[in-house]
Design a protein around this nucleic acid. Structure first.
Lengths: 189, 189
DNA sequence: TGTAAACTAGACCATTCAGTCTGTTTTAAG
DNA sequence: CTTAAAACAGACTGAATGGTCTAGTTTACA
């Protein structure tokens, strides 16, 4: 199936912003990457900002949901779904190469632009809520607050991915995740 | 004591880059912030890049060491020093407001510039090595690898700080750190 | 006090930036 | 076939970018 102009643009923007960040990516770079003239691009998006926000919605958000498959399964303890997802994710190389695209943009844009903050938090919240749902569907040892635990899980995964983005080896990342899994297992009743 | 021109520049750069990132901070902004004319500034630093790298060395690095006081204490289990430092750090508000300045710059610049990557990794490594030293000075339950545990600690703390930098409340951050402390305590023999 | 070096000062420069403008071509509907 | 809208195309614009240049001023020391 042939890719539409709009899709070509979004793919190029995702790729370049993932590597160079928002301010590090110029319109000229984007135009060159997707080989589409300026007039066409501005036909689809009214500004650079709107374009990148669209990438968050239509590229990064689905990607996050694809990576972190965290839906409630019949007859499976929620926390076991989380653990097995963590295992699976730790095997996927591409995620680690430049850190988490959402987190990267979050660091750069959220402190400086409320629209980005809002859009990025939507993705983050949906992820956290899925984890929360799974945790509430589990029997945990007493005194464990599911909400703060869901934050902890996300914080640790994101922290692992974002540590020294360029050279962080798969192995290093994996051994970090093992500690998280280790901790989660200790919370099962 | 009076502040030198060079110090004024570094302070302004630290502040602005912390908020806006590297590419989001222009020379014009820096000049305005510190009220120093261009010619003077370029007398001290030959380029924007050199200037920001100097900020990493002379502002961010000492700041990290000041925040994370992780030196070996006589007669104290290393892991207890880590735990009490985590407690202390979680009470310091300023760190959380815009995330960790080192991590922020890391996310933006490391994938794109080898000099930044190197300089930032120096700070990160010194922190990790301190933690490693403390862990090696502790009795941990069997099967725990101190090296990967030190990575895990940093990943979790950085992840906690960087999650939704703007609005992440102190409370939320604190409850995340509690899980880390909880885990660390479970590893004491 | 003479003088070289350190520092201050800001006008100026080429380049790049995001975004606009004015057309041309293609598509789809009647 | 006609026609209006959607899409393509790229030259052009004003503002902002990092950095240079040529001065003037202060400092430190001989």
């Amino acid at each position: 199936m042939m890719q539409t102009t709009r899709e070509k643009i979004l793919d190029a923007v995702f790729k370049l912003v993932y590597i160079n960040g928002y301010n590090g990516t110029s319109m000229a770079m984007i135009l060159k990457e997707c080989g589409i003239p300026k007039g066409s691009l501005y036909h689809y998006f009214k500004s650079k900002k709107e374009m990148v926000l669209t990438v968050v919605k239509e590229r990064i958000n689905p990607r996050m949901n694809e990576f972190y498959q965290l839906d409630v399964e019949e007859g499976v303890e929620g926390i076991d779904t989380i653990i097995s997802t963590l295992y699976k994710v730790s095997k996927k190389e591409l995620l680690v190469s430049n850190g988490c695209p959402l987190n990267r943009l979050n660091q750069e844009m959220s402190p400086v632009d409320a629209d980005f903050e809002e859009e990025i938090n939507l993705v983050y919240d949906s992820l956290r809520n899925k984890i929360l749902l799974l945790l509430n569907n589990s029997s945990l040892v007493e005194g464990i607050d599911a909400e703060s635990l869901s934050e902890f899980i996300i914080a640790t995964v994101w922290g692992s991915i974002s540590l020294s983005p360029k050279q962080s080896s798969q192995k290093r990342y994996l051994s970090t995740i093992k500690h998280l899994i280790n901790y989660l297992k200790s919370l099962k009743v």
